[in-house]
Amino acid sequence: MPDYDLLRDHLSKQTLDEFVLSMDEIEAILDDALPRASFRASWWETERAPDEKMAQREACIAAGYIATRLPDGTGVRFRKKTAKSVRKWV
């Protein structure tokens, strides 16, 4: 099972309010393969079920980011929770 603390640490070092990481980039950060479930939007989306504790979501939240899987499933958009401008991505 991947160590999502590595993702948290990576996200904590970021200075951009919003950016995208491909699934391959996330796997490189984790030095491990993501589970098949990671290709479902609900697996990443920190705002969808905030009461449901999942390690990957908790890592994003702890680093101050909201995660949303891209519609095509190729990556994840990370947006700082404190970002002033919020754009709706389709």
Rank of each mutant, 00 (worst) to 15 (best):
G75R: 08
L16F: 05
S38W: 05
I66F: 04
S42T: 11
D9W: 12
K84N: 09
R8H: 06
K13V: 00
Y4Q: 07
I61V: 14
E47C: 13
M23S: 03
V86H: 15
E25V: 03
A41M: 11
T74Q: 06
K84T: 14
M23I: 14
A55E: 15
Q14L: 01
L34D: 00
A59L: 11
L16W: 01
T74I: 02
Y4C: 12
K81M: 09
I29D: 02
D24S: 01
D32V: 04
A49N: 06
D3R: 07
R48S: 15
E47I: 08
I66K: 07
Y4R: 03
S22Q: 02
I29R: 01
D17M: 02
D24E: 03
R69L: 04
V90N: 13
K84Y: 06
D32W: 09
Q56D: 08
K81V: 02
G73R: 00
L6K: 14
W89K: 15
E52W: 04
P35M: 06
V20Q: 02
R57T: 13
R36A: 15
F19P: 03
P71G: 04
P2A: 10
D32F: 14
E52Y: 05
T82A: 08
A62V: 03
L21W: 13
K80S: 04
A28V: 12
E52N: 04
V20I: 13
A55V: 05
L30Y: 11
T46V: 09
A59S: 14
S42P: 02
R57A: 14
F78P: 00
F39V: 09
A55K: 11
M1T: 08
S42G: 09
K53Y: 11
T68P: 00
T68Y: 08
I29Q: 05
R77P: 00
K80C: 01
A28M: 12
A33Y: 12
L7K: 13
D32M: 10
R36P: 13
S38K: 02
R40K: 15
D17N: 10
R40C: 12
A59P: 12
K13I: 00
G75L: 07
E58R: 13
A37R: 14
R57G: 14
A55R: 08
E25S: 08
D72G: 05
L21D: 06
D5V: 09
D32N: 15
P2M: 08
T46R: 06
V86G: 11
V90H: 10
A83C: 03
A41T: 13
K53P: 08
P71I: 04
K53T: 14
K88A: 10
E27C: 13
G75T: 05
K88T: 14
K84L: 10
D17Y: 01
S22R: 00
E58L: 14
L30E: 05
L6T: 03
A28K: 15
A55G: 07
S22A: 04
P50C: 06
